[in-house]
């Protein structure tokens, strides 16, 4: 869906992005992770041509992104940033309606779409449609920013540290919303973050940037199990590798038959949370429930084996 083909961007003679090639498949979430100044934002902004590459090219759906005029290209690509960039002089509805209006949708269709998006983000349309951005909390502004980016149902969504300013609880909620929305629309997403936990949680694939170079691009499991460089290893955090690995899967795939004491855990709980629960409640095995019915158990011994690194 999106192909970076040997893309570089120089500022002066310093490369902000150096010879990056990567492919993001349709409906995937590619998360670009790296320290500050590693070139993540520059890489992202070359997709909708807020920055032009010095060399190389970017194909979207097989077409060079320079075939369309920049403004027409951008109407088909959602863009959401940390500061959300809402228009302070426009209501919530007007903000969300920005791209549909530019595309000339009729008023009825726009208004229906605005209400649909507000509901999707758990905001009552009747209550929020006519508010001004300064009348919203930070978390609400952030959701409107993403709603605006999605308004015209773009096949591609770019997000630059979209959850960076949110407190941990709201951030987790926003991440779940994003995953649900991605599932509903099948949007192809490139998301930039400096938070490896966020990358592991959201990414179909993770690209690690270090000083302008893409040093590893792979599925989360492979990143955790086999970091390509010391830099990737340090991003993962030396002490947390087993837990990272466990957090990537749910207990559903390791349910065995048998009895276990106490309250059941849901089948979609991560292995990491299950191990924690097993330790905390002093139970060697936990019953697992799906759709309100106990369907088996997981044992602490099995969870420990799943967290073990390669020999």
């Amino acid at each position: 869906m999106i192909d970076f083909d040997s893309v570089s961007r120089l500022y002066g003679d310093r490369p902000a992005v150096a010879d990056v090639s990567l492919r993001v498949g349709t409906g995937e979430i590619a998360v670009i992770v790296g320290t500050s100044g590693s070139g993540k934002t520059t890489l992202l902004r070359m997709v909708n041509r807020l920055v032009e590459p010095s060399s190389g090219r970017i194909l979207i759906g097989g077409r060079d992104n320079r075939t369309l005029p920049a403004h027409a290209l951008r109407r088909g690509i959602g863009y959401a940033i940390q500061g959300h960039g809402l228009f302070p002089h426009r209501t919530v509805a007007e903000n969300i309606a920005t791209v549909p209006s530019l595309l000339g949708w009729d008023a009825k269709r726009i208004s229906a779409r605005v209400d649909e998006l507000l509901s999707l983000f758990h905001l009552d349309p009747a209550l929020f449609r006519d508010r001004m951005p300064h009348q919203l909390s930070g978390g609400q502004q952030q959701r409107i920013g993403v709603a605006r980016a999605l308004a015209a149902e773009p096949p591609v969504l770019l997000m630059d540290e979209p959850f960076g300013a949110l407190d941990p609880i709201i951030r987790e909620k926003a991440q779940e919303d994003l995953l649900a929305i991605q599932k509903a629309y099948g949007t192809t997403i490139i998301l930039v973050t400096h938070d490896m936990d966020e990358a592991l949680h959201l990414g179909t694939r993770i690209g690690v940037m270090d000083a302008g170079r893409l040093v590893q691009y792979d599925v989360p499991h492979a990143i955790v199990a086999a970091p390509a460089t010391d830099f990737v290893r340090s991003l993962l955090g030396a002490g947390d590798r087993a837990f990272h690995l466990l957090s990537l899967s749910t207990v559903e795939e390791m349910i065995e038959s048998g009895e276990a004491p106490g309250a059941a855990i849901p089948a979609d709980m991560s292995m990491r949370a299950a191990l924690s629960e097993s330790l905390w409640s002093r139970r060697e095995a936990l019953p697992v429930a799906k759709d309100g019915r106990v369907i088996g158990r997981v044992t602490r011994a099995a969870l420990e084996r799943r967290g073990a690194g390669p020999q």
């Binding site: 951008r74 088909g76 228009f87 530019l102």
Partner: peptide
């Protein structure tokens, strides 16, 4: 004024 809003205008595809 409001550099983020101005950039958002460009990113939304305004001429």
């Amino acid at each position: 004024l409001a550099p983020e809003a101005r950039e958002a205008a460009t990113a939304c595809g305004m001429t």
